[in-house]
Simulated scan of single mutants.
Amino acid sequence: MKKVLTFGTFDLFHIGHLQILKRAKALGGYLIVGVSTDALNFSKKQRNPICSQQHRMEIIQELKCVDEVFFENSLELKRQYIIDTKADILVMGDDWKGRFDEFKDICEVIYLPRTPSISTTEIIEIVRDIS
Rank of each mutant, 00 (worst) to 15 (best):
A39Y: 13
A39Q: 13
A39T: 11
A39R: 15
L40C: 08
L40H: 08
N41L: 05
N41S: 13
F42K: 14
F42Y: 15
S43K: 15
S43G: 05
S43V: 05
K44S: 01
K44H: 07
K45G: 01
Q46A: 05
R47C: 01
N48H: 11
N48G: 00
N48R: 13
N48C: 00
P49K: 04
I50P: 01
I50L: 11
S52D: 05
Q53T: 08
Q53E: 15
Q54D: 08
R56E: 01
R56A: 01
R56H: 04
R56Q: 03
E58Q: 10
E58G: 04
E58I: 02
I59H: 11
I60P: 01
Q61A: 07
Q61K: 15
Q61S: 13
E62L: 12
K64Y: 10
C65F: 07
C65R: 05
V66Q: 05
V66W: 07
E68N: 05
V69Y: 03
F70M: 02
F71E: 10
F71S: 06
F71G: 01
E72W: 06
N73V: 10
N73M: 13
S74I: 05
S74Q: 14
S74L: 08
S74E: 14
L75I: 12
L75E: 14
L77W: 05
K78A: 03
K78C: 04
Q80A: 04
Y81L: 07
Y81I: 07
I82L: 14
K86V: 00
A87G: 03
A87V: 04
L90R: 02
V91G: 01
G93V: 02
G93M: 03
D94A: 08
D95V: 06
D95M: 09
D95P: 05
W96M: 02
W96K: 05
G98E: 06
G98V: 06
R99L: 12
R99Q: 15
D101E: 14
D101K: 13
E102M: 14
E102G: 08
F103M: 10
K104S: 06
I106N: 04
I106R: 11
C107A: 11
E108C: 06
E108W: 09
Y111D: 02
P113R: 15
P113H: 14
P113L: 12
P113V: 11
R114M: 09
T115F: 11
P116I: 04
P116W: 11
S117I: 02
I118P: 00
S119V: 12
T120N: 11
T120Q: 11
T120C: 10
T121G: 08
E122Q: 14
E122T: 12
I123A: 00
I124P: 06
I126T: 10
I126W: 12
